[in-house]
Design a protein around this nucleic acid. Structure first.
Lengths: 221, 221
DNA sequence: CTCCGATTGGACTATCCAGTCCAGTCCTAC
DNA sequence: GTAGGACTGGACTGGATAGTCCAATCGGAG
């Protein structure tokens, strides 16, 4: 009806376009992390990137679409920030190194920021179903990495055969989220450290009986 | 300079006024819980209470003040909702009853809501210092109740003398918050149950050696 | 070179929202 | 009963914000 199908180029198909889109996304991710979805306006993004309003709508289908892209970006950066410790979990010692990495990351900005993903739950879970699902899959990916580490630990005999890496990984993830939430509120890393230590103690309870060292080997603060 | 000091009546000093103020606060608390601070407008509150704009400003010094009052109200209702189980914690069995209460509360609304306090952290911690401090003191009160229960447990010999009730209570609180956050995001109570079970397992690791039962006595889901 | 679509700039609109204002009504102390 | 202050109603304002529109420019394929 409106002409033959031409090979349609997508918005951002050129190198320059992709660069611009990426710059917008990076700036938006930073703003959303610092201020949340509602307090980040498209004009803030525009100002931070020196890009015009129409470009925002050229690359994204409105604010909701931009936010979804931000969630996907956060999902990547959060995992990347924990490397290489996250993927190197293979023992309680490795777990401790990963815990220290998380605590160190939070200390870097004086606990002024929450978890890029966790902070968005209250904003999105209520009325942005697509956003909520994006968060769920981001959390699932994170949990998957942890689960893998725990499986390695179990195979190495550091966890009992009966241990359920999937559930334990979920427990670790909740400890991170709860710890970061209270760290953000109190502006202190202590809740994060305590949460992770307590969860890891819960893990130690799943160590084979003979190996089970006393709790607190990691040093409570 | 402007006349002798009269016994100044405060806004809401009459019975009727106090009733109205309370009705506004209750409605605002519900709306803020469901939608968050930014997505709750004063007009929403006005519509939900049948009250006029000027009454809102008569009883509160603007939106920020109303939100602070909502935080204080939430601080009360959250603790009240956990009664009587919260203040009855005196053993691992009591802890399990309290955990079931929390899980049951979350199930009541199908995990559609987050923690009334936790959900506000991302909204307030960034740029409302008074709101942030109100949250911190609400969390402190909650932690205090938990700490008291753990002290009772320690005195009853269910926790080792070396156990630190303050830190362990903080760990429990982070488990709740992380569990509720992921429960809200995934619309499933499982993260909450797993988080609490894992934290309680961490607590069991602090039980005196002889009494220490194996982990998972509470039944992992 | 020349064309065409991708890309860009920025003005414009419609809506929403916190906060203001003032006139009218109700309650209570005297 | 009555005067004064507490309480109430609702219109109005200024500013911010998401989204629209169209003309101008750029850049690569033929």
């Amino acid at each position: 009806m409106d002409g033959p199908e031409r090979p349609r180029r997508l918005a951002g198909s050129t190198t320059r376009g992709r660069t611009t889109r990426d710059r917008v996304l990076t700036a938006a991710a930073g703003l959303v992390h610092a201020r949340g979805v509602e307090r980040t306006t498209l004009d803030d993004v525009r100002a931070a990137t020196g890009v015009s309003k129409s470009q925002l709508y050229h690359y994204f289908d409105g604010k909701a679409d931009l936010v979804h892209a931000v969630v996907a970006r956060h999902a990547e950066t959060v995992l990347a920030a924990q490397q290489p410790e996250l993927d190197a979990i293979d023992s309680f010692a490795g777990l401790a190194r990963w815990r220290d990495k998380l605590v160190g990351l939070q200390e870097q900005h004086g606990c002024a920021l929450g978890c890029p993903l966790g902070s968005l739950v209250a904003d999105l879970a209520g009325d942005d179903e697509l956003g909520r699902l994006a968060l769920v899959s981001a959390f699932a990916a994170w949990q998957g990495r942890l689960r893998h580490g725990l499986e390695v630990m179990r195979d190495h005999g550091e966890l009992a055969e009966s241990a359920d890496p999937e559930a334990l990984a979920l427990g670790l993830l909740t400890a991170i989220q709860g710890g970061l939430l209270l760290a953000h509120a109190t502006r202190s890393v202590r809740p994060l450290r305590v949460a992770l230590d307590m969860a890891i103690d819960g893990l130690r309870a799943r160590a084979p009986a003979l190996t089970a060292a006393g709790p607190g080997a990691a040093g409570r603060c």
